[in-house]
Amino acid sequence: MEEKLQAIVQALKEKFEAQVEEFRDEVHLLLAPEHLITALTDLRDRHGFEMLVTVTAVDYWPQTKPRFHVVYQLRSFSKNLVLSLRVPVDGDEPTLPTATGLYANANWREREVWDMFGIRFEGHPDLRRILMPKDWEGHPLRKDYPLGYEEPQFTFNFDEIDLSKPRARK
């Protein structure tokens, strides 16, 4: 771990009882959901992490406690550091507080996580689906969501498949 990062990680670890994991010189901080916003505020205002690079999630289904890890990747321009925060959340319909008040680009990133994983962000100003159509059911990047395929249309099943395409026939 880089020296500059060491001090920051130590401070966060003590303040939020965070777990530190290191893998291939990258630091992952595991935080409880209730500390998320204070930790992000601290990182932005006191430790110089000016940019939220990305927000994403990982589904550990069929495990339920925690089912998801929400990953916040942060970058400091002044100190040239990267850090990732991981927040475990339980259950099938989890919620987390939104980071849109701290980082403006959290808006679309959180919408994407909601769309793909079904994790709700409390207080988000515009939590609509972003990549999938608005009437889509389910959240595609969950592990219990099948990959799916389209059945090829041959002569023997032409009519049957054609029936399922009302929009194409219009």
């Binding site: 893998f23 291939r24 990258e26 690079v53 990305t54 994403t56 990982v58 990747q73 990267v82 990732s84």
Partner: peptide, 20 residues
């Protein structure tokens, strides 16, 4: 087992891959 984040400078900006 583990997670990494690798970023490159693409013509449009930071292109990162989070791989777990």
């Amino acid at each position: 087992k583990g997670a990494v984040y690798a970023a490159v400078e693409s013509p449009r900006g930071e292109l990162g891959v989070y791989l777990e």
